[in-house]
């Protein structure tokens, strides 16, 4: 019986070990890493421009072939290259809106959890209500309201712009995050170091920013990953129903590409449906796996055993 590795591990090392032992998450990290490399190097990896045709007409709906690995769309553009540009926009939407919503949610959740009382009650009521309402309905209605308020235009940009979508999902995702952070803060609040800080008269702001938020990094990271997936899927859902960002200047997104799949079903141009959907699923699945492993890794309840 070998008894090596008996040194006691720090919490961070333990967390890292647990993360690495989640094989699907490690694979997902590699996939997302490769994908990021692909889209950052888009000018090199893409074979054609976003709006470029693979050949002179007739070029529409070509099946996958050497000239166009994943086939072409209705006006002869290369699906493979467009996917690279599309994923670029979608990941940007996902990340940017997740950062907005996690920042908002972490602050609201921390303040609600820390102050308790009326503010907490009202915040949680409101988030409950929003979360209970069908997501797509709220999304569409809020989208229209945001778009109809002229004084918001400088922030949100035009309704069909990528920026608008980012703001929309940024404003949307914070509720789930707020719940998670609030729960974490409620449990941290009773712990010694917070009590100690309070006893020596530290200000609320100090305690929240120095103690509560840093100690909630685990849950916040987890919330961030799930918000990214939420926004990417949300964007493609909106685009699918024709409410997504518009393809001005030939710019594209995963949602726009997936939306084109609707027509493909009737006509049998399977590649237009299968490949974008596959990419979307792989991205969503990978990020979900990473989030799951992060949660396992940072959840102190699992410190013992397995």
């Amino acid at each position: 019986m070998s008894k090596q590795e008996s040194t006691v591990l720090s919490p961070r090392q333990m967390a890292f070990r647990r993360f690495v032992s989640h094989k699907a998450a490690v694979a997902s990290c590699i996939i997302i890493g490769l994908l990021t490399l692909f889209i950052v190097l888009a000018p090199l990896t893409a074979r054609y421009g976003v709006n470029e045709s693979v050949q002179a007409p007739p070029n529409s709906f070509l099946t996958p072939r050497a000239k166009s690995w994943l086939g072409t769309d209705d006006i002869g553009r290369d699906l493979y290259s467009r996917l690279i540009y599309g994923v670029r926009v979608s990941l940007l939407i996902g990340l940017a809106s997740a950062i907005i919503s996690v920042t908002l949610g972490a602050l609201v959740g921390a303040v609600a959890g820390f102050r308790g009382g009326k503010f907490d009650d009202i915040m949680m009521r409101v988030t409950d209500l929003f979360l209970a309402f069908p997501f797509l309905v709220t999304l569409l209605v809020v989208r229209n309201v945001l778009g109809a308020l002229p004084w918001l235009r400088p922030i949100t940009g035009d309704m069909s712009s990528v920026r608008f979508i980012i703001v929309l999902f940024g404003l949307f995702g914070w509720m789930g995050v707020a719940r998670i952070v609030r729960g974490q803060v409620l449990s941290l609040k009773e712990r010694e170091f917070v009590e100690a800080a309070r006893a020596v008269g530290a200000s609320r702001r100090y305690i929240i920013t120095r103690h509560l938020l840093p100690n909630s990094v685990g849950p916040i990271m987890v919330a961030l990953t799930f918000s990214v997936v939420g926004a990417i899927i949300g964007e493609s859902t909106l685009a699918f129903f024709g409410y997504g960002p518009q393809a001005g200047d030939g710019a594209t997104s995963l949602g726009i590409l997936v939306g084109a799949a609707k027509g493909a079903v009737q006509t049998g141009y399977w590649w237009l449906a299968v490949f974008p959907c596959l990419v979307l699923i792989v991205i969503a699945l990978s990020i979900n796996f990473i989030g799951d492993a992060l949660r396992d890794a940072t959840d102190p309840r699992l410190d013992r055993g397995v």
Partner: peptide, 10 residues
């Protein structure tokens, strides 16, 4: 003896 992530623990 328990099998733990850090090795067997008797």
């Amino acid at each position: 003896t328990f099998d733990t992530p850090s090795g067997p623990l008797e």
